[in-house]
């Protein structure tokens, strides 16, 4: 559409290095004020269901961290270790996002403390451990006591249960009048939903191949 002439070439000569520049500031101060005003306004449209979802999901994610942190020492397979490492990375980031979502809206922010296999969540109210998919204390103990192939089998089985619980929580959120309208809430819940559905399918495959290769022995 346009051609690079000599003038453009000269621009190249001056900018093609590794330039870090402050661009010239046009008069965008009004737009900038409007931008931050709208960011502020956008966080006003949420419902108690959104708050409850975020609060609960922080504790839910925290348990996935407890489970996944066991893998490096106990897992037999590189695939399970990789999966666990990615769950730690992903859910840590999501916990930070959800904590910030609550903080931005002046809501109590649950803090999580993990001591070995023991999880403590402060400030999650009565959500604590009764959410869909949460492992019982016995299940956590079983997982902690296992190693090798048995750990892999239990880890996948329990994490599938755990993830399915999370997708149930998303379903409940979207099934509530007015919930999930907030862009950040819709996006976070949708992302958790697709990521965990994808991971469930992957874990089912891994579990099947684990079972068939165990039988193959």
């Amino acid at each position: 559409m346009i051609r690079i002439g000599m003038a453009a070439m000269l621009v190249v000569l001056t900018t093609t290095g590794c330039a870090s520049t402050n661009p010239p500031v046009a008069d965008t101060s009004d737009l900038e004020a409007l931008y931050w005003e709208r960011q502020e306004a956008a966080i006003q449209s949420y419902t108690p269901a959104d708050v409850s979802f975020m609060t609960g999901m922080i504790a839910h994610h925290a348990q996935a961290l407890v489970m996944s942190r066991m893998a490096p020492e106990r897992s037999a397979s590189g695939q399970v270790k990789t999966l666990a490492a990615r769950i730690i990375n992903a859910q840590n980031d999501e916990i930070a996002t959800m904590q910030r979502w609550l903080r931005d809206r002046g809501q109590p922010v649950p803090e999580i403390h993990i001591d070995g296999n023991h999880l403590m969540v402060h400030g999650a109210g009565d959500h604590s451990m009764s959410m869909p998919g949460m492992l019982s204390k016995e299940q956590i103990d079983d997982l902690a006591a296992s190693s090798g192939n048995e750990f892999d089998r239990l880890f996948l089985t329990y994490m599938i249960q755990h993830h399915e619980g999370a997708t149930t929580m998303v379903k409940e959120l979207f099934g509530t009048d007015g919930a999930g309208q907030d862009e950040a809430s819709f996006r976070l819940a949708s992302d958790i939903n697709v990521d965990q559905i994808t991971e469930i399918a992957r874990m089912k495959r891994m579990l099947e191949s684990l079972t068939s290769s165990t039988q193959g022995r």
Binding site: A8, V12, G17, A19, S20, T21, N22, V25, L34, Q39
Partner: peptide, 26 residues
């Protein structure tokens, strides 16, 4: 927002245009 520091290599930035008012912040 509109004045972040930038780094560019082997490209020329021809223009940067902010969104129209109704779309700012969205």
């Amino acid at each position: 927002l509109f004045d972040a520091e930038e780094a560019i290599w082997n490209l020329n930035k021809i223009s940067s245009t902010p969104p129209p008012e109704q779309f700012v912040g969205v």
